[in-house]
């Protein structure tokens, strides 16, 4: 039975297991440092589909099918399908849920969806009665651009603090028993808004949320940053990462030794334009693709999301953000 610890953290004493996972990406991500670990890489952004939205759907459903196969779980054994994406009405998740055919909970955490999904999976499996929960998320550079910013062929010049939305999808099977990485505990974040209005500077908008969640997590669990082999944020990018380190220092936490940001890992230096990557798939692809293959003992994944809409920005409102933290343990140090 899941239990609450401190102000915002939940432990999963029955230790739900991640028995299967899958990573699917577009060409750019496939050519990056984590690409070698991805289950499927599509060679172009249209993926032979009629629209970019259909391409993103294809990625999400492909990730779910591969994750189920690797976890040895049939589609009709899935108790709950939890999914979220960036698009209006989380339409990708809705259509994917139709194809999966399982009971569905749609979530919107923007780019924090990966950890939000894992948290709900852990909760449902640990004392919630579920045997198998599938958590999935996706993002596509073109669907995000077309909804949040400009048509994809528009000649915009991005500022150096802007980030590139990742094209990819990931799915994880959270099971009541089995072998694999363990969902140990999770901290649910609160919305933070310190007045950043520039939709191109999401790193600065999200860093306070990441900071607040991490500080709360450490206080709730009584842990130090060093208790983790690695702490990663989802997509703060270069600017957000520097801000987080500064915020942490002022709070008495030294993150310099074992903290990195997925948005800075997913692309190689040659591939990186501006401040790095963003998108729901960013944290998921790096975590499941790269970090799950590194022989860590315990990592803290802090997915970060900006909760603005194109309308809110145009109306002059600042950008609220959220971050959720999930602690994953690897029995016997690795897969």
């Amino acid at each position: 039975m899941a239990m609450k610890v401190g102000s915002q953290t939940f432990t999963f004493p029955s230790r739900p297991v991640l028995t299967g996972w899958a990573t699917v990406s577009g060409p750019k991500e496939g050519q990056g440092p984590a690409g070698a670990y991805f289950d499927k890489i599509f060679p172009d952004l249209t993926m032979q589909q009629k629209s970019f939205e259909k391409a993103e759907q294809l990625m999400m459903i492909t990730a779910v099918e591969i994750a189920l196969e690797k976890g040895g779980v049939a589609k009709d054994a899935v108790d709950v399908f939890v999914a979220g994406d960036l698009l209006n009405q989380i339409i990708i998740s809705g259509y994917s849920a139709l194809k999966v055919g399982a009971p569905y909970l749609g979530i919107y955490g923007a780019c924090s969806s990966f950890c939000e999904g894992l948290f709900l999976g852990g909760l449902l499996v640990d004392g919630g009665g579920a045997q198998y929960v599938v958590a999935a998320t996706s993002s596509h550079n073109c669907t995000a651009e077309r909804q949040f910013r400009y048509p994809t062929e528009y000649g915009a010049q991005l500022p150096p603090w802007a980030q590139h939305t990742v094209t990819g999808a990931a799915a994880v099977v959270v099971a009541a028993r089995g072998s694999g990485p363990v969902l140990e505990l999770a901290t649910v974040g609160k919305v933070m808004d310190l007045g950043i209005k520039d939709p191109y500077n999401m790193g600065a908008a999200m860093a306070p949320a990441a900071a607040d969640t991490i500080f709360t997590h450490l206080a709730d669990t009584g842990r130090q940053p060093g208790d983790y082999d690695l702490i990663v944020t989802g997509d703060l990018g270069r600017v957000g990462r520097e801000l987080l380190v500064e915020l942490a220092l002022r709070q008495g936490h030294d993150l310099s030794a074992n903290y990195r940001d997925c948005g800075e890992i997913i692309y190689s230096r040659e591939q990186t334009e501006n401040a790095g990557a963003s998108g729901c798939a960013c944290s998921a692809l790096v975590t499941l693709g790269l970090l799950f293959n590194q022989n860590y003992r315990r990592i803290l994944v802090v997915a970060t999301g900006a909760l603005h809409s194109p309308t809110s920005c145009q109306q002059g409102d600042s950008i609220p953000a959220i971050a959720h933290a999930v602690s994953i343990e690897f029995p016997k140090g690795g897969q």
Binding site: M192, G195, P208, E246, R250
Partner: peptide
């Protein structure tokens, strides 16, 4: 040191400082 999480104005100033300058 100030807790910037409670001080939006100070945080915004710090964020402005951390912004990489475009190569004008």
């Amino acid at each position: 040191m100030k807790n910037l999480l409670r001080d939006p104005k100070a945080y915004q100033e710090l964020a402005e400082q951390k912004k990489p300058r475009p190569n004008l």
